[in-house]
Computed example of a mutant assay.
Amino acid sequence: MPVPDPVLEAAIAWQLRMGSGDATQADGAALNRWLSMHPDHRRAWRQLGELDAQFEAARGAAVRGVLARPRPARRLKKLGPLLGVLMLAGAALALVNREWPLADLGADYLTAVGQRQQVILPDGTVLDLNTRTAVDVRFDDRQRLLVLRRGEIHVRTAHPPGELRPFAVRTADGVLLPQGTRFTVRRDDDATRLAVYESAVEARPGYCAPAPAACALARRVGQGGAVSMRPDGVSDAAAADPDADAWRDGMLVVQNRPLAEVVAELARYRFGPITLKPEAAGVRLTGTVPLDDIDRSLAMLTRGLPVRIRNYAGLWLEVGAASGN
């Protein structure tokens, strides 16, 4: 079973810290506490250790070659730091790739961690990209298509006089066909989330034949509705959160939500992992949280909630109960 991404990111952050040469005894003790918190933590650390072992095997082969030459000790001293730097660089690259996947660098529009962008498309449609979002725009004489590779978008479709080309948004889970509307689309690991704020959108999961062919799995989502779409179907409609698109104004609006959900959402806007200790997960929050400086926003939460924040190496944040260890 794969290790969850946030856990692996935290393990990489720990590896970078412990291999930096600046790690203290307190860092070592904190690492041990983190390893003892959950089996997944130990599993992620073990997997990174196995990766290091592969580097060590490669280094061993190189060392054997060096030993056959004169003055091996001096050459080994030169080789060791270089390979150490390469291992740290590899871990750093893995972390960067998880925060900003290299495969998305060719997207037409791309936002980094914490970045937002607004684009006016050739037909006048207004496209807003949230954090960590990659979109391709494919407008031709037959279609107006957005391909959401990952992340979240807000779309306000335009209707120029004489425009006959259909407008669509495609994700790995299917196709969305707006009918003169304003809506948001979010591509999560397990599904595509759609929320409709004006008019309606037809959600056609991946198992459907291309429109206009009829499909029993398709669902029309009206104004104020929200669904999750996977290749094999669309969920029943629920009420859309009217504040879910507040990210366009740099805010997260929450109403009596558990801290576990709030932290998971804030983690999308920060480079580096945020972990939440179990005793703080149930703390509930109502309010508005700024998204432009997540570290500062979390620090503000400690003034009104029974929680505390620990910062490790300026990269990993741990949120726990104020009375916890």
Results as ranks from 00 to 15, higher is better:
G222Y: 05
L88T: 13
G21H: 09
G282L: 08
A10T: 02
T184Q: 09
R193H: 12
D5M: 08
N32M: 05
R303E: 15
L259F: 03
D52S: 15
R268V: 05
A91H: 15
G114M: 08
V196Y: 08
A203Y: 15
T157W: 05
M1A: 13
L276R: 01
T125V: 01
E99H: 08
V155S: 01
H159N: 13
R142C: 00
R193K: 08
A23D: 05
E152M: 10
I153S: 01
L127E: 03
M87Q: 14
D293S: 12
T24N: 03
L291R: 08
T184G: 15
D236S: 14
R138P: 00
A94E: 09
L110S: 07
P81Q: 00
R156D: 11
A209Y: 07
G287Q: 15
P212C: 10
L145G: 00
E265T: 11
A112W: 09
R257I: 06
L82N: 00
N32H: 04
E318V: 08
R165Y: 02
W14E: 13
P166H: 12
P205L: 09
A58S: 11
R43K: 14
G49T: 08
C215T: 11
T181H: 12
V63F: 01
L301N: 13
V319A: 04
G60E: 01
Q223R: 11
L48N: 11
D241A: 05
L164V: 12
S228D: 10
A92F: 06
N32S: 12
R69A: 15
L35P: 07
L76S: 12
H38L: 07
E56N: 15
L95A: 14
P231A: 06
V319H: 00
L86D: 01
L93F: 05
A107Y: 08
R75H: 02
E9S: 14
P273E: 03
P178F: 13
A68M: 09
A23L: 00
R268T: 06
